[in-house]
Simulated assay, not measured.
Amino acid sequence: MIHYKITSALIVLASLFTFRQAQAYPDFIGYAYSSCITCHYNGLGGGALNDYGRALYATEITARDIYPKNVDEEEIAAQSGFLGKKSLPWWVRPGIKYRGLWLKMDPGSQATSERFINMQNDVNLTFFFDKKQKYTLVTTPSYTGIEPYYGKTNTWFMKEYYLRYKQSNNLWWYVGQMDKAFGLRNVDHTAVNRRVITLGQFDQSQGVIAHFTYPDWDIAANAFFGNGAQEEPEKQKGYSVTGEYQVFEKFKIGGSFLSSESEQSKWNLLAFTTRMGLSKGSAIMAEAGFKERTNKLSGADAMLGTYALVETLVNVRRGYNILSVVEHSKEDIKKSSPEVMKWSLGALMFPLPRLELRAMATNAKVYADQTGSQDAWALQGQVHVSY
């Protein structure tokens, strides 16, 4: 029994160090931008930036060290388009996103290893059917590399594709394949509130979302039917509801619920979230919840687990930040099961337009009944080019 627990603990621990990323920065509430629809075509966050989001990224998030003092912010914003200052036709907005990771496991030990992973290779193509952008088609062709996408490697595939319809300033509809509506769409898709609960980088699902947005609150309801690349027995079909309320400026609280089922497994998720801006560019956000998973193939009882994430972003100066992430996960609170603690600390930097760099150190530990694992350390460096 002890051997089984240690083996399970090591599997959980290893999964924490497989990093994949996407684009979403809910902790930018520190800049007083608390609604994702301000900067993204997807009002719940993630994916391609709109024109305003590109300009904001260039003039508030990115350092301006390369620009002479006589260059004003309007000039910098004007250079943030896909072709710089050159205007594009009103009906199309392209984009390119690349993210690579250098990962060193167990630094300083005889078992140390390192590798470089091409994590994200996306092309964003957004099309408008009218100048007021009432009808919009958002697509993201992507390349897998050696990391598999439902069994596919080294090939192009359609990661997301959906129609966005603006019924009014307060109601938006999304129909197609996209991320499920749930919780905080933070950047790390291997975090405890992402991949391990079916919300990872490649867990987009076909479906429909109704998004109600007002100055003080947002609510989204999502019915989904599984990813188009999955085999039918794997497809999770169900619904979710998520919402946030702004208690006061730069402070929001929220909650999410998701229920889904395939021929192989069933999931019920419940989460509570909060985001708070501390000062310009600095913020703290948290998500804590329950995760219930039923393995329908084995016939075993449902496993009710818990998870929690607290992320703090401290702005040192424009373009340079200290990032800290604390995570906790327990697979089954009804029985004895391993508990995982993980702490990541490092720097999040935007030194040049269209460029993001990360340098992080991570410590993780698994606690099991009457035993525990040695601390596991990892170093990582990331480069993200967004064009």
Rank of each mutant, 00 (worst) to 15 (best):
H3W: 06
H3Y: 11
L16K: 13
F19H: 11
A24Q: 05
F28C: 10
I29A: 06
A32V: 09
Y33W: 13
I37T: 10
T38F: 09
H40Q: 03
G43D: 05
L44P: 03
G45C: 01
L49V: 01
N50M: 08
D51F: 08
Y52L: 14
E60G: 06
I61H: 04
T62E: 06
A63S: 15
R64A: 11
I66Y: 05
Y67M: 08
P68R: 12
D72Y: 07
D72P: 01
E73I: 11
E74Q: 14
I76W: 09
I76D: 04
L83Y: 13
G84S: 07
K85A: 06
W91T: 10
R93W: 04
L101S: 08
K104F: 05
M105H: 10
M105C: 06
M105Y: 11
M105V: 09
P107N: 07
G108E: 05
S109P: 02
Q110M: 11
A111L: 09
R115N: 12
N124P: 02
L125A: 12
F127D: 04
D130P: 00
K132D: 11
K134A: 02
K134I: 07
K134S: 04
K134F: 07
V138W: 02
P141C: 02
T153N: 09
T155F: 05
W156L: 10
W156D: 06
W156H: 11
K159E: 03
L163N: 00
Y165K: 02
K166C: 03
K166V: 04
K166M: 14
Q167V: 04
Y174I: 00
V175G: 04
G176Y: 01
K180R: 15
A181T: 12
F182Q: 06
N186M: 08
L199Q: 08
F202E: 00
D203P: 09
S205Y: 02
T213F: 10
P215T: 04
D216A: 14
Q230H: 04
E232R: 07
E234K: 01
E234G: 02
K237M: 14
Y239D: 07
G243L: 01
F248M: 09
E249T: 11
G254D: 04
F257R: 11
E263Y: 01
E263H: 02
S265D: 14
K266Y: 03
K266E: 06
L269N: 13
T274G: 12
T274Y: 10
R275S: 14
M276A: 12
L278V: 04
G281Y: 03
K291A: 15
N295L: 06
L297I: 14
A300I: 04
L304V: 10
G305I: 00
Y307L: 00
Y307V: 00
L309E: 02
V310F: 02
T312P: 01
V316M: 10
G319T: 04
G319P: 12
I322T: 14
V326H: 01
E327K: 03
E327Q: 07
H328D: 09
K330P: 01
E331W: 10
E331D: 14
K335A: 12
K335I: 08
E339L: 05
V340C: 00
S344G: 07
L348D: 14
M349Y: 01
M349D: 07
L352T: 08
L352D: 05
P353L: 13
L355I: 15
L357H: 00
M360L: 15
V366Q: 09
Y367F: 15
Y367C: 08
Y367N: 14
Q370T: 13
S373H: 05
A378W: 03
G381N: 06
G381S: 12
G381W: 02
G381F: 10
H384I: 11
H384A: 13
S386N: 12
